[in-house]
Design a protein around this nucleic acid. Sequence first.
DNA 1: CATGAATGAGATTTCATTCAT
DNA 2: AATGAATGAAATCTCATTCAT
Lengths: 217, 217, 217, 217
Amino acid sequence: MANPAADAHEPATARGHRTRQKVLDAAEVVFGTRGYEAASIVDITRAAGIAQGTFYLYFPSKKAVFAELVGELGAKLRRTLAAAVADLDDRLTVERAGLHAFLGFVREHRNLYRIIRQAEFVDEALYRDYYSKLAEGYRVGLARAMTEGQIRKLDPEAVAFALMGIFDFLGMRWVLWEGKLPPQHVLDDVFALVRDGLGLQSSTFNARASNAPKRSR
Amino acid sequence: MANPAADAHEPATARGHRTRQKVLDAAEVVFGTRGYEAASIVDITRAAGIAQGTFYLYFPSKKAVFAELVGELGAKLRRTLAAAVADLDDRLTVERAGLHAFLGFVREHRNLYRIIRQAEFVDEALYRDYYSKLAEGYRVGLARAMTEGQIRKLDPEAVAFALMGIFDFLGMRWVLWEGKLPPQHVLDDVFALVRDGLGLQSSTFNARASNAPKRSR
Amino acid sequence: MANPAADAHEPATARGHRTRQKVLDAAEVVFGTRGYEAASIVDITRAAGIAQGTFYLYFPSKKAVFAELVGELGAKLRRTLAAAVADLDDRLTVERAGLHAFLGFVREHRNLYRIIRQAEFVDEALYRDYYSKLAEGYRVGLARAMTEGQIRKLDPEAVAFALMGIFDFLGMRWVLWEGKLPPQHVLDDVFALVRDGLGLQSSTFNARASNAPKRSR
Amino acid sequence: MANPAADAHEPATARGHRTRQKVLDAAEVVFGTRGYEAASIVDITRAAGIAQGTFYLYFPSKKAVFAELVGELGAKLRRTLAAAVADLDDRLTVERAGLHAFLGFVREHRNLYRIIRQAEFVDEALYRDYYSKLAEGYRVGLARAMTEGQIRKLDPEAVAFALMGIFDFLGMRWVLWEGKLPPQHVLDDVFALVRDGLGLQSSTFNARASNAPKRSR
DNA sequence: CATGAATGAGATTTCATTCAT
DNA sequence: AATGAATGAAATCTCATTCAT
């Protein structure tokens, strides 16, 4: 799990710290809009308001900032998701909250998709890591819910990837392409699908919706 | 709908046609392995066994081959899927056949993912088109199944994207990362999820399974 | 003095002759509008409506067509000028007729300037030849007029170049830049200058104008 | 009056300034000897003793240096001419001094002709500007001399272009082709032509000459 | 005679990275 | 710490010319 940014000069002063952060912030914007290859170091330093050479005081290479950026984005997303579902019990509520947090994150970091997808070409390990870690967190939650009998027993990793796929594509289709959260009926329908797909013992208030499956026409 | 490769010289002789095809074939391999940016025209022509300048007889730019490639891959995939489900009635069978065909296609065109994902950075329209057209075909099929009462009524586009997400991530996790089709139990579990998520009037033998969320692994 | 187009394949058939001429005509247009370097063989052959390879059936190189073109243009211009002043006696009339013919030629061959000026860079000898031959013809005429006492005795070559300069710049300023012949008063004034500059025994009807020099204000 | 070189990076340090100047100096030589198209950036940087990439620190393109060069040459020439005739009253003296300064400048900047002529193909506006500005300065001087009654009243722009033509061709024929100033008798004869052409109230000793078209050589 | 495919040298331009101040 | 000049490898694309049919 070698940190590719490990050999970056760590700033010694507070001023240095600020500069380093400016670079990272600028990098997110620039990589997100231009893409990894099209983004030049000058683009980044200009966006950060510093001189070209200064970049190399904090990062040994272009790849290194990018790697750190991907790592940070993944970690931040995982923290966000974890926080969003922290105190929730009901699995459907967890899923809803998770998706909601995810879509919100995407809206906040519109370049997330573009950055992650570029990661594949910069360093295969980077994007696998991103998805693997995300999936792993998801898998654990699902496995627990299965153990607790909230949802039926299925291969938790398979389910984790399947649900991630659903959410990912929702984010792409609506947040990324349209620039807004999916309309309510889309969310409702997707959750009907998820709920029944998971064989959720639809608790309380969801009950009436959950019986819908047998609507004929 | 403007074809970005429209200004490519159309070959006038059979020899020219062969050469043009050699370029396209080489491009798929090279773009797939190196990625769009890292792939150089020389890489392509070398792989195609022709001189550098010859490339420009058939494509006006690197971007143009790439665009044509993406278009072709999408079309071929759609044809493959359409053919795979052509004569099937039962919706779950359709889904199974569709996923099977998709995964097979991915295994055959390992670089599909990489190419599509790069498309986003080469020309936004390219990859949107790819997914949009795919989704549209899917949507139509789902809408018909809903009308026929095979599956419950949900927003068909939402479902199309959700299922595409599932399949896409399955392909990524197993075919792309592991290099082989997902194990049977993964497929089974995912289909249990899909089937019940869709509220499928599971015909015949699938009926009891849908009530049995208690499978071990 | 070597003819750079000497090694061009001379066409054997009438059809060949036509094709060769199509190339030359196209070349005048293309070189004139794009300039020698920017003009490509494909531009020429496309304009001529023939295939790329056909070009080399009639000219051994790009330089060769250009050289032939310059040679032809110069010869045609000299013929035009000679014809225009052929039967004239009065020197001022000769000058007038010469300028008139020159400006007409320029208007007909708008690219003359551009082609001649490019010639300098293609082959120094070409454009020197063009001007030298033109000047030589001029010089002879002037010398004769001096001998005959029509104009005062000055170095005829110097005068030839001076007058060529005048006419060249008139053509540039009005025909080339404005696209039309210079206004009458410009021509009149220039000829007043030429006439008195040459010390012309201004015959008959020009007499009154020739006294103008002493207009105070 | 958009400056085509406007987007060139302005150097921030003295060292940068020196380098930029080295490029310009080298460019004058290289463009002058090879011509615009034949001159490559490598030729220029090699002549300047810098690396290829350095060029682009100071000029955005080959065209841009060329444009700046033409602009500078024109300005320098105009300054030179203005200085040469600054304190002179007599118009013939002015013309003599002007031609002398012009020919001297040409001798100093042998590539002036080649550069200006190439300008036409690089950017039409460039060479028009060059001549227009030159003519404008000339026109103003002539108009004043006319008002003062030094020379007769003719269209000053027409005369400006005519005289520019004369001087230009003198420069071409002798300085450019022979590499030396025109022989004295050529200058004398041309000035006889100019003087009487302009109807100069030939002060003092020139008076009788103007009536004597019978000089031998 | 005519075609059009094929070649490959060469030109411009970009950019990550290093260096000197 | 910060700057900005300098480097030079590499990439895309053009085009005169040759070849095969």
